[in-house]
Write a protein that binds this DNA or RNA. Structure first.
Lengths: 207, 207
DNA sequence: GTCGCTTTGTGCTTGCGTTCACAAGCGCTT
DNA sequence: AAGCGCTTGTGAACGCAAGCACAAAGCGAC
């Protein structure tokens, strides 16, 4: 379920505060969801709660992490090191959550060979070689939209089966490859849509 | 509808290629959705298609833009100029889509006063003043999670009613404020979950 | 002008996810 | 040891979105 990471984040935050037991009601509030939904989600993992008491925070963190596959480290390659790729390479939130950025790749000869976050940028021509050598299953695309599909195809051909795409383009992939799309312009446009709906209805009401 | 921006992106891409008319089938393929869903979505805006022919690309771009409220420019403030905020400030995809980054704000005295993407970083203490002076309705939070809720509250109090949050924390806001959450770690965790499901079932099948 | 091809717009069914509401169960107190 | 209060886990109802399938409608050809 796509909500497990949110629960995990809330749980680790609670754990850091020293909380040892938590009720579905409290955890649901921290995660911003309905408590029944949370209980149903957690029940799919097994019966890890105690009736009348709640859930043991540490134990639940472990169980959710296991379900998400975070008990092992996932090697990741970042393709494209513009401003965004740069930010991703320097983002500390990955390593602490079971992801290791194993390689940085870019097509720009001026970037290749430079150090970013203690790691050397590799040329795009070596992409397949790098993916295979490290057994990388997860790729991050932070390139311009024009080359995103090409990079995606090469990643998939080299064995990558999960892709996080920051480029504003729809990626075509085989059915067994998972793609998640993050597009900041689209998020802003959705906000603009809601902003306008707050204004337009007042005009309609005035008619 | 949250899919309109995706349609708009596909439409502008087609327009740049010189395409003038497009069928729901073609546009749906470009946007990665079902054609019936696309037609139903577009029909909510009005009847802008011609039966037997399709949709006029330019006209549809205009209509979708109008529906999304992109015929006007939306002023935006970015709070937090770490690696991610930096990348956002330099991202060209905003201005071209009807958003103008009007102010950059950070708490770090070393950053305040520096120029980023031709704009001077303002101190966090002036946040409310800046929001009110520019009539800013949309705020982007790219701060550490620890201060995200505090910044969010100040933005809302100053009049911001839409927030794009990159910090890994759930924001509590009044009902009339829209929040959209972007969390790269969560996206990666969802990918890891699917990756693991590709491996674990093979073990289960072996039993 | 009529016929047929193509594509939109939409009623209806189907399926999934959310939510309510309650029974089952655990621990604490007396 | 028994009862009480609290919380989980889940069966059942509800609502919404997705997709099918077809009727309505425009355009071109003959």
């Amino acid at each position: 379920m796509a909500r497990l990471p949110i629960y995990l984040r809330a749980l680790t935050a609670l754990g850091d505060e020293g909380v040892t037991m938590v009720s579905s009601e409290e955890l649901a509030a921290a995660a911003g969801v309905n408590s029944a939904k949370l209980r149903k989600d957690l029940s799919h993992l097994g019966s890890y709660g105690t009736r009348g008491v709640g859930y043991d925070v540490d134990y639940l963190v472990f169980q959710v992490s296991r379900e998400l596959g975070l008990t092992q480290d996932w090697p990741v390659v970042i393709v494209g090191l513009g401003h965004l790729g740069h930010a991703l390479a320097n983002y500390g939130g990955f390593a602490s959550r079971g992801f290791e950025i194993r390689a940085l790749v870019d097509a720009d000869p001026h970037l290749v060979g430079t150090q970013i976050s203690g790691r050397q940028v590799q040329p795009l021509s070596r992409l397949e070689e790098i993916v295979r050598a490290h057994g990388i299953a997860i790729g991050v695309i932070a390139t311009p939209a024009a080359v995103a599909q090409s990079v995606c195809g090469r990643l998939v051909a080299a064995g990558v089966s999960s892709i996080l795409n920051f480029a504003p383009s729809v990626l075509a992939v085989p059915d067994d490859v998972e793609v998640r799309q993050v597009d900041m312009s689209i998020e802003l446009q959705i906000l603009a849509f809601h902003e306008q709906r707050k204004i337009v209805p007042s005009l309609v009401a005035g008619l």
